[in-house]
């Protein structure tokens, strides 16, 4: 690990961007570790939330990159336990969301994040088309995107027997309104 001097600090550091976009001031974190103590997935992370925040506080390009390439930022459940217990009320889940988006933008997202990204795309595609989520359609789309074609196949047929899956989508009536809403907010990317 290289030592960090003040010269390495960047004005476009992640910490700066985070403050600008989310309003969260990372310098408020004094490393009490309460967030990681209550985090249900801290044990599955290569670095828990408090370490992510600590690395970002250095505002070093190397450390910023380490955070963006980590799997940790993709494991956050947004359960908000850290945020609700933080003595400085730092909204860590919001920071994690921003870091994921930034990792995707910079092409640094951890390989294991691909499924999650595919899931969100399949989900939004369904909502853009029907105005409501059509679970089977979304799942088929997800399977095609990820190649997990046979995952949960027996579960799927059980759910169908229980009447828990709708074969046909029951969307909104005013589909034009939903399409317009998507177009105005995303430029129809989805």
């Amino acid at each position: 690990m290289s030592s960090i001097s003040h010269h390495d600090r960047q004005t476009t550091s992640l910490a700066n961007k985070i403050q600008e976009v989310t309003g969260v001031a990372l310098q408020n974190c004094y490393q009490c570790g309460k967030c990681a103590a209550g985090c249900p997935v801290a044990g599955d992370m290569e670095m828990p939330s408090c370490q992510v925040l600590r690395l970002l506080q250095y505002e070093s390009p190397d450390y910023d990159r380490r955070v963006l390439e980590s799997e940790s930022i993709w494991l956050c459940l947004s359960c908000d336990t850290c945020h609700s217990r933080c003595p400085q009320t730092i909204n860590t889940p919001k920071v994690m969301y921003f870091l994921r988006e930034e990792a995707v933008r910079q092409g640094l997202a951890h390989p294991k994040s691909k499924d999650a990204q595919a899931f969100h795309k399949a989900f939004l595609g369904s909502v853009a088309r029907h105005g409501r989520l059509h679970e089977i359609g979304m799942l088929m789309n997800y399977k095609v995107r990820t190649g997990h074609l046979f995952q949960d196949m027996t579960l799927g047929s059980k759910l169908y027997q229980k009447g828990k899956l709708e074969l046909l989508p029951h969307g909104v009536k005013d589909k034009a309104a939903v399409k317009k809403l998507f177009k105005r907010t995303t430029g129809n990317k989805e």
């Binding site: 969301y97 899931f119 939004l124 907010t185 995303t186």
Partner: peptide
């Protein structure tokens, strides 16, 4: 999923 695409959405 929506805010992955855009907060405004």
């Amino acid at each position: 999923s929506a805010h992955v695409a855009s907060e405004e959405l």
